[in-house]
Design a protein around this nucleic acid. Structure first.
Lengths: 345, 345
DNA sequence: ATCAAAATGACAAACGTTGTCAATTGATCT
DNA sequence: AGATCAATTGACAACGTTTGTCATTTTGAT
């Protein structure tokens, strides 16, 4: 009882050959249903779990996927990791989280070593790695299949999973306009961050559709950080005719805008509506709680894992496009948004 | 060139047997220095990395450590994971993050399956799992070595790594008293959370030492969440003689207190000082930024990994105590604390 | 009863490492 | 020189699985 059961024990218990057990384990369709049942019963009976090390040694598969991320494990990356782990568990796969220090001078060699040493069946890249050209170049050369989560540029260069960024912003701004807001401030990202332009596009499209003129004074760049959101809101609200609603392109910046509102003694949402983007852990540590857009982060990573497990990461459709999934977002209305106090023109 | 080099290639290159290469890899001291050099040169030359799967198959070691955590990957757990990964990388080990759903009805069986299937050399438990009696009981029976990070109860039942909770709170409260605060509110945890009593003890000891009478009205229980901190602060500040400083036993609750201060139009830190605990990501998404205590989370997890890798998790000192490390904390003074506006009494 | 197709099994050859134990080398002592 | 012993090295069999090649048995349809 000291040693865990092996495939031999299962075969004996089920009264079949180890080859048949192996067939069952690897979902070979040529196994009769009754045999399948018997083998599965034996597996359950003995609580057999295949030895992954032994499994990956001779075979082409390693039953392992790596999730690459940049440096710290943020809320977003934690969610992605969790989603990937859970999907992998179901399929008997494992996930190696691999932090990458992209600022390090020997980044390239370090990454190559990781890729050579890991022997994984696939890679998942989460932002901002999804758009890092040096990393992508190295991975491309390694020939390991990979899926990018939320890529922004050159999207079809690989398999990917994303959410409809532009439409999400569009819907949020449309929602704010629907509440009666005519002057809607937008705190975007720094212009070199690719998602910024997409989110801005959604903002402009929503204004267009509601017949609201675009005013560049209501758009401020940010850095996706709390202080940058605070400063951007400071500038927006210092204008002679300030906006009645502010939409931050992520929750941290929206939280910064919230803090600035507190500083100015503005009541949220009565005097100012504020909305964020991400539905991160941050959206619930403000007061009032932020209206935001929920990104399906766990789901996206889970889908990425599924694509790799199913071996579809390299597939290309007839139209030449790489395997991809677009997942739905969700508008989460909390307490930080309401109709403006008085209609303005 | 398609296949990565194996130990055989290295042996050929170095002109020795594979066994000798294996010895070098495993730091066997019986290898002559000249041979060692030759083998290491060959390893560098070929950029050889041992195949972990093959390595764990025959041997007792698996070069793998699992980090168990409860459900979501929070900021704290992300830090711990990162610390563990980096320490493991240096030693050629890998980390499996394993989320555990402790609320699930078949928790026990699920955990047992994980333990059986994982074949890891050791486990790291992070809070709140570190004090989960059911989980500990199962792991104890599995005979897998483990290290607990920041355990609170029955500390010496296993190897552990922690920070000096009590003294950290003591120092923070002493610091606040040193600023001139005489009425210091304390938002603790729920009483069944073991760390709560320790942190409260530090609070009381600091008051004692500064000759400030303990007033139970200035102590409010919380749930380590933002809303609970907000409500606790609401009660504290509604008193006829409210505190001039509030210390939250974690950052989320301190952030809640901050939000309540904004609601009451109190200026922080002029009207009210607020301090947190953890130096989590949250402490920088408030305004003003929180004074807090930095827990050495990454370092604790890294130490835990080191204990496992060095095989010391089961060791017991002459005095019967398990292997452990106590790491230093750091008082991080930011903008949310200052001397009270006017001395009272 | 016959035949083809579908299921299964026996066996062997990997996969890359470590463990066991025996063989070789080299140094020291007589 | 020979003996002795420790230090160093090597040969070979595991480890548990997948994969492949055939051979065999079972099944189902006619």
């Amino acid at each position: 009882m000291l040693k865990p059961p092996t495939i031999v024990d299962v075969a004996r218990e089920a009264g079949v050959s180890i080859k048949t057990v192996s067939r069952v384990l690897n979902r070979d369709p040529s196994v009769k249903v009754s045999t399948l049942r018997r083998v599965n019963d034996a597996i359950d009976e003995l609580r057999y779990l295949p030895n992954l090390a032994a499994r990956s040694l001779p075979g082409a598969r390693n039953y392992t996927i790596a999730l690459l991320f940049e440096n710290a494990i943020s809320d977003y990356q934690g969610k992605a990791l969790k989603g990937a782990i859970e999907r992998c568990r179901q399929a008997g796969y494992r996930v190696f989280p691999e932090p990458l220090d992209v600022t390090s001078p020997d980044q390239d060699e370090a990454l190559k070593d990781i890729l050579r040493g890991l022997r994984v069946d696939g890679l998942i890249l989460v932002p901002p790695l999804s758009d890092n050209p040096r990393v992508l170049a190295i991975i491309d050369r390694s020939r390991i299949p990979y899926v990018r989560v939320s890529p922004q540029v050159d999207v079809y260069r690989s398999a990917f999973v994303k959410m409809e960024d532009e439409r999400a912003v569009f819907e949020m701004v449309t929602y704010l306009a629907g509440l009666g807001h005519q002057r809607i401030g937008f705190i975007g990202g720094n212009s070199d961050h690719p998602s910024s332009s997409l989110r801005l596009a959604g903002y402009r499209r929503a204004l267009d559709e509601r017949g609201i003129a675009f005013d560049p004074d209501y758009v401020e760049p940010g850095l996706f950080t709390f202080p940058s959101g605070l400063e951007a809101a400071e500038r927006l609200l210092a204008q002679p005719i300030p906006p009645t609603a502010i939409f931050g392109a992520n929750d941290e910046m929206a939280l910064g805008a919230l803090a600035q509102a507190h500083r100015l003694n503005l009541h949220v949402p009565e005097d100012l509506s504020i909305a964020g983007f991400d539905d991160s852990i941050f959206s619930s540590v403000g007061w009032p709680q932020l209206t935001t857009i929920r990104q399906p982060t766990e789901e996206m990573a889970a889908e990425a894992a599924a694509i790799l497990i199913d071996g579809m990461a390299r597939d290309v459709a007839e139209d030449g496009s790489a395997t991809h999934r677009i997942l739905p977002f969700e508008l989460v209305v909390r307490e930080s948004t309401a109709a403006p106090r008085a209609r303005n023109e």
